[in-house]
Amino acid sequence: MSDEHNTLDAHDDVKDETVLFGITIPFPIYTVVFGALAVLTVIEVLIGTAEHGSLTIPVLFGIAVAKAVMVVLFYMHLRTDNRIFSIVLLIPLIMAIISIIFLLIVPPVAY
């Protein structure tokens, strides 16, 4: 790997090692994120295939959101990119969530 890359964009400064909670890990941040995604998926499958309790669905949903947020922030660079991109993603997302919640509230049988 050459180190003569320019620094036009903010996310160009990805290093070959990542410092996490004070510990230096010899992989770039992307690999660390992948590791976290894999671990979370395993946890998710373990919870999801076990007997469902009252907390199962919220916890599963929370883990899914965490995974999605990691992909969006790190792989899609929203953490460092222009804020307009976050706005462009968030507004339709809010719309989508509102509409899904409304569909869930309205009873399926017509009045």
């Binding site: 509409s99 409304f102 569909l103 309205v106 399926p108 017509a110």
Partner: peptide, 9 residues
């Protein structure tokens, strides 16, 4: 199915 689904969406 759900006939109101169409109207909502």
């Amino acid at each position: 199915g759900d006939v109101l689904l169409w109207q909502n969406i």
